[in-house]
Amino acid sequence: MELTGEFEFGHEDRGEIYDYVERHGSIKPKRLRRALDIDPRAFGHHIAILKRDGVLEEVDGELRVAFEEVDEEEFSAAGVDCTIRGARQEDLTGLVGAIREVAEEGAYIEAETVADVVDHEEVLIRHNELESRVFFVATVEEEVVGWVHLNVPEVGKLRHTARLTLGVLPEYRGRGIGGRLMERGVDWASESDYEKIYNSIPSTNQAAIQFLAGHGWETEAIREDHYKLDDDYVDEVMMARWL
């Protein structure tokens, strides 16, 4: 999955159409036209151009931001058939549930924050002038069992970095799914010309720290007593990997 589309649309109405779709995740064309109060003929013209330019696409009768899809990866994970693919808007509920389950189990604050933001916005993929956000999911029988998420600031001085979170539901660990998700996230970041990925984890989450260290991540800094978990102060371990 690659982010496509620039933020120069050549017409104010096209910019407004894109912004509305991007904020809402997906929307039916008629509802979008009414919300923006654009002349039907002009609206159809703008939509046709945005589709032609690969900025928007229509899926199941709804418009959404277009992405260049990458091949799905299918593999057997210790007897379980698993698929890794780009997340879709319809994965939102299952994905948020998986993130919350992993976050609560291991005090994964960064992931918990991601779940809160996505749940509040009700939009998975973002691509605007301030940030870009993508997810890849691991599914078993179409149920989300793991994810890798990358959030990219569009601010120039940070444009070379991406914040990554990753997790797998407890019952599916030890099957290599987490490693494959990590590879997918790293490949996406590298192919998109990002130079560094980073993450922060409470020091009590030793399993996550060891997992990242085993995949080439290094501890850059430790902020003492940064988190307060169950009335106990816990250090924040700030980790990163250069690509």
Rank of each mutant, 00 (worst) to 15 (best):
Arg126Glu: 13
Arg88Gly: 06
Asn128Val: 04
Arg33Asn: 08
Asp235Trp: 02
Ile27Lys: 05
Ser132Ala: 13
Val140Trp: 01
Asn205Ser: 09
Gly5Glu: 06
Ser203Met: 04
Lys51Leu: 14
Arg163Trp: 11
Glu141Tyr: 06
Leu124Phe: 02
Glu110Phe: 11
Glu101Leu: 14
Asp53Met: 10
Val148Ala: 11
Ala103Leu: 09
Asp53Phe: 10
Glu101Lys: 15
Val237Trp: 00
Met239Tyr: 01
Gly10Phe: 04
Asp13Lys: 05
Ile47Trp: 00
Leu63Phe: 04
Asn205Gln: 07
Asp37Asn: 12
Glu22Ala: 15
Glu195Leu: 15
Ile49Gly: 08
Ala78Leu: 14
Asp71Ser: 13
Glu131Ile: 08
Val70Tyr: 04
Val21Asn: 01
Leu95Trp: 03
Asp60Met: 12
Glu218Tyr: 12
Asp81Asn: 09
Asp60Ser: 11
Thr139Ile: 07
Tyr108Arg: 01
Ser76Met: 07
Glu69Phe: 14
Val237Met: 04
Val118Pro: 00
Glu22Gln: 14
Glu8Leu: 07
Glu16Phe: 07
Val237Ala: 01
Ile197Tyr: 00
Ala221Ile: 15
Val137Cys: 07
His127Cys: 13
Asn128Thr: 05
Gly61Lys: 11
Ala87Ile: 04
Pro170Gln: 12
Val152Glu: 12
Ile38Asn: 00
His149Ile: 03
Leu158Gln: 14
Tyr108Asn: 03
Glu110Ser: 12
Asp37Val: 12
Val102Asp: 00
Val96Ile: 11
Gly25Phe: 03
Val237Gln: 01
Glu224Thr: 06
Phe9Trp: 11
Glu122Cys: 14
Glu22Phe: 10
Val96Arg: 00
Asp91Ser: 11
Arg64Glu: 13
Lys51Thr: 09
Val117Tyr: 06
Glu74Ser: 09
Glu191Ser: 15
Gly15Leu: 02
His215Met: 04
Asn128Phe: 06
Glu112Ile: 07
Asp235Ser: 10
Leu63Lys: 00
Arg85Ile: 05
Ile38Cys: 02
Val145Asp: 02
Val117Ile: 07
Val237Tyr: 00
Glu191Pro: 02
Leu158Lys: 13
Asp232Val: 14
Ala107Ile: 05
Ile201Leu: 10
Leu124Ile: 06
Ala138Gly: 06
Val168Ala: 01
Tyr198Thr: 04
Glu74Thr: 13
His46Trp: 05
Glu74Pro: 02
Thr161Gln: 15
Glu183His: 12
Leu164Met: 12
Ser132Asn: 05
Glu191Ile: 12
Asp37Trp: 03
Ser76Val: 07
Val152Phe: 15
Ser76Trp: 06
Phe67Arg: 14
Gly15Met: 01
Asp37Glu: 07
Glu191Asp: 14
Phe7Asp: 11
Ile201Thr: 14
Lys196Ser: 14
Ile125Leu: 15
Ala221Asp: 11
Glu110Lys: 05
Glu154Gly: 12
Asp39Tyr: 07
Leu63Cys: 05
Tyr20Leu: 08
Gly178Cys: 03
Val186Leu: 09
Arg159Asn: 11
Gly176Tyr: 12
Ile99Val: 06
Gly97Trp: 02
Asp37Met: 08
Tyr108Ser: 03
His46Ser: 10
Gly79Trp: 08
Ile49Tyr: 08
Val168Ile: 10
Ala66Gly: 09
Gly156Ile: 10
Arg100Met: 12
Ala189Arg: 01
Arg100Thr: 13
Ile201Glu: 00
Ile84Leu: 07
